[in-house]
Design a protein around this nucleic acid. Structure first.
Length: 355
DNA sequence: TAGCCGTGGCT
DNA sequence: TAGCCAAGGCT
């Protein structure tokens, strides 16, 4: 492999073909940081409108550091992996207080920030600061597994080190930013998971997999397990003033700190799910309920589980104590709170926002 | 290490 | 349709 020739072909292709993306307008470390967090496990087309809105609302480290977490979560609503943005704000606060608002350019320091792992650290260091650090994501592993004919299982966490070592040997010290971005862009546009466009590839002549005709056999990636089904009852509960009861989820775990309609996991047993829910609710809030028939069901698929939500409507039979994590709100005000998509579906299908 | 942690688009 | 996949990180 002629490394200089490879770098040249790759970077020249990137300069010609790179997409015009909102986070490529400058190299502001904060913007690069926000974009890299949003792009984790998320498609470019999905991220674009969120990125633009997020930077309008939180244009600087100082603004985000001082922002209300509920507003931050609201700006992330629908993007998924919500701990990303809670970690981001936490890390931004640390940069604001400990580093005088300057994102560290030191590999060891930046790696200590919450939510900044090996990939994101390398991406910020190379793109914002021009440092020759590897930024190994799924694209890079796929592309390099083909070019270098690496048969290790990229689903194994330990495999990333192999690719980091490979990148350290290949990366352009003249333009580490473009080198890393070009590798990812190539993975997104040409060297795709299925049916790669090898005939359009700028580095085809350097690709061992193409040379051997095995580009469709790489990368090696073991399958993931199926999602576990979970049965849930969720109730849209109103008081005598027609206000709807919502609550905030716990500060850790699934959908942490997001809002939802009261819900309980039920088991398939002899007792009806309606009775199980009323019992749960009474125990949790010391208030009785009158529940009607099930108004519908919603299936929502997560990475590791499937919610099968049985939706009921009902009325609160007594006064309930509101608090920071429990509120009675008018239907028209639901839009002020950050709900996961599963509960946005409930709002859309079962709640009249005019009433 | 492997499981947890979202969502929407594509095949 | 069911599975797979996308610029990962945390525990």
């Amino acid at each position: 492999m002629d490394i200089e020739s490879f770098q040249k072909d790759l970077i020249e292709w990137f300069e010609m073909e790179m997409r015009d993306l909102p986070w490529r307008k400058d190299q502001d470390p904060y913007k690069v940081w926000v974009s890299e967090i949003m792009l984790q496990q998320t498609r470019v087309d999905t991220v674009i409108p969120y990125f633009t809105r997020f930077l309008e609302k939180f244009p600087s480290i100082e603004v985000l550091a001082n922002a209300d977490e509920d507003q931050v979560l609201k700006a992330w609503e629908g993007l998924g992996y919500y701990s990303r943005v809670r970690n981001l704000q936490s890390a931004v606060k640390e940069v604001h207080e400990k580093y005088e608002g300057q994102v560290p350019d030191d590999p060891k320091e930046i790696a200590t920030l919450k939510g900044v792992g090996p990939y994101t650290a390398g991406a910020i260091l190379s793109i914002a600061y021009g440092k020759p650090e590897p930024a190994v994501d799924g694209n890079v592993m796929r592309v390099l597994s083909r070019i270098l004919l690496i048969w290790e299982d990229i689903a194994k966490p330990s495999t990333r080190k192999t690719f980091e070592t490979a990148v350290r040997g290949l990366i352009s010290h003249e333009n580490p930013s473009y080198f890393n971005q070009a590798l990812m862009e190539l993975g997104a546009l040409i060297c795709t998971p299925t049916s790669p466009s090898c005939l359009l590839c700028p580095v085809r002549d350097h690709c061992q997999a193409f040379d051997a005709g095995v580009q469709n056999e790489l990368p090696v990636k073991t399958k993931k397990k199926k999602q576990r089904p979970v049965e849930l009852v969720t109730a849209v509960l109103k008081d005598e003033q027609n206000r709807i009861l919502i609550r905030k989820r716990p500060e850790s775990g699934l959908l942490a700190n997001m809002w939802e309609f009261p819900s309980a996991e039920v088991s398939i047993e002899y007792r009806s799910e309606k009775e199980q829910f009323k019992e749960y609710f009474k125990e949790e809030y010391q208030v009785d309920l009158s529940l009607g028939d099930m108004v519908g069901r919603i299936e929502h698929v997560f990475s590791h589980l499937i919610w099968n939500i049985h939706v009921f409507s009902g009325e609160l039979q007594g006064d309930i104590q509101e608090g920071p994590a429990l509120k009675l709100v008018k239907a028209e005000d639901l839009k002020e709170f950050a709900f996961p998509v599963s509960h946005q579906k409930i709002i859309k299908q079962f709640i009249d926002l005019e009433k």
